[in-house]
Design a protein around this nucleic acid. Sequence first.
RNA 1: GUCCCCAUCGUCUAGUCUGGCCUAGGACACCGCCCUUUCAAGGCGGUAACAUGGGUUCAAAUCCCAUUGGGGACGCCA
Length: 474
Amino acid sequence: MTEKARVRFAPSPTGFLHIGGARTALFNWLYARHNNGIFVLRIEDTDRTRSTEEYIEAIIEGMKWLGLDWDEGPFRQTERFDIYRNYGDKLINEGKAYYCYCPPEELESRRKDAMSQGRPVKYDGRCRDLDKPVPGVKAVVRFRMPREGQTVVDDLIKGKVIFENSQLDDLIIFRSDGTPTYNLTVVVDDIDMSINCVIRGDDHLNNTPKQIQLYSAFGYSVPKFAHLPMILGSDKARLSKRHGATSVMAYHETGYMPDALINYLVRLGWSHGDQEIFSREELIEKFSLENVGGSSAVFNPEKLLWLNSQYIINTDPGRLSDFVIPFLVKKGIVKEDKLPDKGWLSKAIITLQERSKTLLELADSLSYYIDEEVDYNENAKTRFLNEKSRDLLIEIKDSLASTSDFSASEIEKAFRLITEKNNIKLGKLAQPVRVAVTGKTESPGIFEVLEIIGKEKTLRRLDKAIETIKESQG
RNA sequence: GUCCCCAUCGUCUAGUCUGGCCUAGGACACCGCCCUUUCAAGGCGGUAACAUGGGUUCAAAUCCCAUUGGGGACGCCA
């Protein structure tokens, strides 16, 4: 019987949940779900000056929106300081850690010197074997790193990565104010929470040998490691704010479906043959770290947009309406206490699914079905609402006015009758009508549009269009 | 500067571990055609890649080395 997989996502709340963090969370989540394991959420907020409550909320909100549910936590490191203290004291008592009295400014200048002289930048260990404390100075605690030999990171994605211990720094595990630092807290927490597979960004690969030394100092065996390659912007630099929207919730707000973003993110580095679109169930079934590539990936908003359009097309209209309604409300197209009929809305949505790449676009298009008044696009108006189309508009209006069954098929018959009579192509009639009822030159099929708008509103809009033509003439 | 990672179309990738089935496949974007009442969606087709140089081998996108390029880390941040 193998042990149960336990993984974690451990963001620090110094910003919103961003694209890179979301992908790390996703891979952890998939690993846990695929292996029937446990997914732990841990908030690494030991840097109190930069961590905020708002960001914790925001990260949780982002996780929930993406549907990445966790089984344990959220734990907060700031609530676990006594645990780190216990572990730390053990190291100090065993001589595996020591107090260092070097002032920060001095360390800084030594670092600069080392870098300019081309020497490895690391603490020289001058406080290692001090036998007495320096009075009146607040000390930090450093971990005594081995100086000889090698540390091997056996990574599930990168393979065996060898580090010379001489390169490893005597890292600070407690600040001079007594608070623990990252490298200590991750290791202690991962031990304490029985994490047996650490999946994180490969910007942590260099930290890993240090952490391995910590594990061994505590007498624990190391978990598996999997270091995911970074996500880059279009200029190949690490993805950051200047590349545009990087916050997960920004995608929510601009009309992306969570499943589309998940699907996009998982394909950044992971693949399953030629398949592009995966349901959540499929992902859970097929996901494996073995199929994660080692090279970094450029974030491509256009492909995400395409995936989103695919998800909009393939989501059933009833469910899609639940996604769209908040956008309709937010844009003031409908009132929260006066929502459109669900059946009617679904019918309207069907006509727009393959024409909308985002929920926001869908909501916008829906507005011409719902609004009382139509705003004409200026170009559309001058091109199609003019003397040439006026008589046709009057003709179709009169014909539609006497139609009792206002269905797409009956509406089509009315249109065909007029085009045949006047010996014109359907477009000659359809375009002016389209502008009259939608204000635009593009829309779903005109017969469906009219049916959805309904007889009364259609006639009113045709009247207004005819009126508009008269005015512009007179 | 030191250490670490990475390298197939513009982008995401299949193929690399286990060399031959690769005349290098799919997807996004782009271009063309078809469908068509507009716009889409859809269908069909097209442009486009194994970074370079050395090896190893009967045979290399695939293995090895070097170079180049890109990324990351080097904090009393995480």
